[in-house]
Design a protein around this nucleic acid. Structure first.
Lengths: 95, 95
DNA sequence: TGAACATATGAATAAATGCTCATATGTTGA
DNA sequence: TCAACATATGAGCATTTATTCATATGTTCA
């Protein structure tokens, strides 16, 4: 399997996004259902600002998507790739 | 699926290791076969020192293993988890 | 329209981290 | 044993990055 350096660079960028405990915890909090920003912040004991900053990064990486409902914005996992990647990682960590 | 914060922390640490282009390129260079340090360095146009430092991190994370053969030390992927994780990541990046 | 609420964002700071340089450790063969 | 080679390692530096604080943007409802 031969891969272009550009693809490997993108791949590293992707894993870098997963490689932060705040972001992983945010992603994990979205495993079951969508959540709004203040909900995530409260659940994880984080600042609203900190959560927003990380949500932005997660969104730019297309790992989550959002929808507005009134004053709140609900975030959810973008697709099952996110679950698969985290699942594979967990297998390695949990053994 | 409920996960302990400690496990999520470990998970982030794991992804952090994958989240560097040098380390990803090293891992990728080991996909087919084991390689010694100088070989990796030459193939990827990196310093011997830089490679050694990163190999140490990869080894501590149990992503690679090593065996000595004379003056050289050959590194190889630790198990198929590494391939799986990278594979899942590639699916997301390549679409 | 204007408070009150929810979220986003920019700047600044502190901490983490990858690379380089110099050098140490380990191995072989003469 | 010692020179030559392969790899490992520590310190220092430069860059990246996560968080905080202050504030801006966007939405609702009275």
């Amino acid at each position: 399997m031969i891969k272009d350096d550009n693809i490997l660079y993108d791949l590293a960028e992707l894993f870098k996004v997963f490689g932060d405990s705040t972001r992983i915890r945010i992603l994990f909090s979205l495993f079951e259902e969508e959540r709004c920003v203040s909900d995530i912040a409260q659940t994880l004991s984080l600042t609203q600002s900190a959560v927003s900053h990380q949500l932005k990064i997660l969104k730019q990486s297309k790992l989550i998507r959002s929808r507005r409902d009134g004053k709140q914005i609900y975030y959810s996992l973008a697709d099952d790739h996110v679950r698969s990647i985290i699942g594979q990682g967990l297998e390695h960590v949990e053994e």
